[in-house]
Structure formats: C-alpha cells, structure tokens
Write a protein that binds this DNA or RNA. Structure first.
Lengths: 211, 211
DNA sequence: TGATAAATACCAACTGTATGGTATGTATCA
DNA sequence: TGATACATACCATACAGTTGGTATTTATCA
C-alpha cells in the first residue's frame, strides 16, 4: 500500500503525517468539517504537499481508511486476546479487550471508518467502500474464532458466525454513538457487557463475575 | 415548541419546511456537508427567511434535533407495539417494530440525531446535548416496559432496565452504521435479530420461529 | 566514477467559488 | 402602529484545488 522510498526523511514523511492528522481530526470533528488546511496545519506540511500526495480530499479519505485498516490490523494481530487455546475464550477475550481499550478521550478510542461511513455513505462511494472493507475485514478475523468455538462446542442455533461477528461490530459502533451523544465513554463499555452476556448465552456458559 | 401563528401559510411555514429539509438532508449527507443554501433550496425559502428563524446554522441544528424528538415521540406513541397487555411482549414488539420499519432508502430509516451526534459531539455541545436528550428520552420510554416485564416475571440478573434500554439504542445505531458502510439495510435488520434473541434469553423465553 | 537527465518531494503564493452571515427592504397581520 | 415573516442583494472569509517553482534523490550511461 505504502510504497517506501529511499527518499524517506527521518521522522515520517508528509504523506504519513497527513494520514495521521486525518485519523485524529476526522475522529474529532468528522470528515466534512476536517478541512485540507486543518490537515496541513496539524501535519505541518503545505498544501502543495497535500495535493502532491493526494489527488483530492476524497482521495485522502480513501487513503485514510486504508491507513486505518493497516494500523488496526497490526494492532489487533498483536493484541493478547489470541492467546487462549480455547476458541470461545478467545472470542470472549476479544470483547473484554475491546472494552478495556475504551479509555481516555472519546476521539481516541472511537472508530475512524465508522464515523466516516456514517457521514459519506451516500455522497462518496469510494470512501464508503474503503470503510466497508475496513469494518468487514475486521469482522472476518473474529468470524474464524466464532466458527471454531461453535464446532468445538457443538453449538446449534439459527445464527451464523459471520452474522455474530458483524453484530459485535454493530454493538461497538452503536456504543460509540451513544458515548458521543452522552459524552460518556461508560456508555460504550456498558454495551459490551451486554454483548458479553449474549455470547455466553449463545454458547451456554455461565456469566463470570465481571470486574 | 412550534408556536403557530394565524399568519401561517397553507402547506406549512418556512420554519417547519426548513426543519424538514434539515431532517432529510442531514440524514443523507451529514450536518457539516448540509449547507444553508442546500437547506433553503430544498425548503424553498430564501436565506433571509433562514436567518429570520434561526440565529445560526448551529441553532438550526439544535432545533432540528428537537423537531426530530417531537416527530419520533409522536410516531412511537402511535405505534402498535404498545398493545400487548404483557410487558415483555411489548418490549419484543418494540424490537420487531424497529426491524419492520427498516425499509426503503437508508436515509429514510436511519437516525438524524445519531448521525449528528457522531459528527458534532466535540465541536458543538449544544447540538450534541439536544441529540442526547432525543436518544435518551426515547430509551426512557422503553425502560418502563422493561422494568415492568422484569417485575412481572421476577427476573434477576446484574443488569438494569435503563441499561438494557440504552443497549437497544446502541444496537440500532450500530446497525445503522453497518448498513451505511455496507450499503445494505439487511445489516441493520440482522442486528435486531440478535437483540431479540438476547432479550428472550434475559427473560428465559423461547425463541420464536421468526419469519 | 562522475556527469547528467528524470523523477520525486515538497513549498509559497494564488484563484475562483462556496459558505455562513448581514443589511435593508416590504407585505401582512394583530 | 408595531411586530412578524419573509425577500433581495450583498459581504468577508474559508474552502478545495492550481500554478509554477526548487531541492533532493534515483536511474542512466559514458
């Protein structure tokens, strides 16, 4: 995705700094309100550099979604919830992990591509599709564990692993919306407690005395 | 909220038409991208009329959230899910109703205040708070039925009626985000199937063979 | 190895238009 | 007569995008 050059300066090139700025600014005030000048100021580059690296603001939007995909993929691959040998435990550890990382400022734990998709789904199909790839690509990684847990434990029921994986994303995204509206991260964490209880129900395991 | 005057023209005054335009345009492309000119064009009023009724674009945002509260309150009060004598049946009927009205264009069934809150939560506290009142005011109406169902059926468990009511909103809002990203309303309906199954679990009732 | 061409990465200043908002007017109604 | 409900024309600024440059790196080849 990012074609590295020997050219590369020491502390990250302008393109990367612009993508990081986009990630932070768009999460804080949305895509439309994030102006090119905003991005350049935060990234400490000029407008000439912006339009050298991106053909348009929308092109940056697509690149920002792909950058987010790369960052989050690496982050979740390195996360500790993969450790349990038991597949269901990995799924529950995923939910617990998602809850645990809901800390600090709202803009720091909410989802860039969920925010962007909500805003541009109709006006910018390119960005929307990049967001969709990011979200549903992530759910696919969870789907494997859910499917394995189902086989291991011989669970029936009229739901699919893919559907449950998507549902975890829906609960997360919805929790973020509520946290933003109510200006309270606890609203997002609270949603994940219900999700945890639901998954334990589907797999017939007892609720743990959570935190 | 809307102080009617004898002045009033036949098909709704400029203020109301602007609020309806705001509702439709903001759901389609977000708050920031909805320009005052857009709103005036769709409402078929001039800019003078806009700034006669609203001190600023942000003031319109607040008014639009309140207008949405009024419309949705009336809509849900008139909805058929209140009919069952049994409180739990009313709760499940609410979820079924929310699923049933997810039809047509995405912009027609998604939530104005969820969209706005996601965008302006940090940059416009007034709008954010109006959105919060709309969302959490609505969850409060469901909370009563959940609490009644709990009493009627003697249900224990480490969750509150208020928390479950908020969770239904989170699932809805998250379903909308996924529907927008995937450009497919089914993604929102699917989330509600999981929610239905979860609620039945909490109240120890069997899953119905849903359509 | 060194000269040179070509590409890349970036910068400063600029442009046309869109934007939120204003100033000032008029018609209608109580 | 005074307030309300608009309309028209206007304004300063913010906006995405352009133009025309320079410095640096890489590729080519004698």
């Amino acid at each position: 995705m990012s074609r590295p050059t020997k050219h590369a300066p020491e502390r990250g090139n302008a393109r990367t700094r612009l993508l990081e700025a986009a990630r932070d600014i768009i999460r804080a005030k949305g895509y439309a309100a994030a102006t090119v000048d905003d991005l350049c100021r935060v990234a400490d580059v000029t407008k000439g550099a912006f339009f050298h690296h991106f053909a348009s603001k929308d092109a940056l939007g697509v690149a920002a979604a792909e950058f987010w995909t790369g960052e989050t993929t690496a982050f979740f691959e390195a996360a500790p919830y993969h450790q349990p040998a038991d597949a269901l435990e990995r799924v529950l550890a995923y939910v617990a992990f998602r809850k645990a990382i809901i800390v600090g400022e709202i803009a720091e734990f909410t989802c860039l591509v969920g925010t962007m998709a909500q805003e541009v789904y109709a006006s910018s199909p390119d960005i929307r599709d990049a967001c969709a790839r990011s979200i549903f690509g992530h759910t696919a990684t969870l789907e494997a564990d859910i499917e394995a847990a189902r086989r291991e434990r011989g669970i029936a029921g009229d739901w699919t692993a893919a559907s449950l994986a998507r549902y975890t994303q829906a609960v997360l995204q919805g929790g973020f919306v509520l946290a933003k509206a109510g200006n309270d991260p606890e609203l997002a964490r609270e949603s994940l407690d219900h999700l945890d209880r639901y998954i334990r129900h589907l797999f017939h395991v007892a609720e743990e005395d959570a935190k």
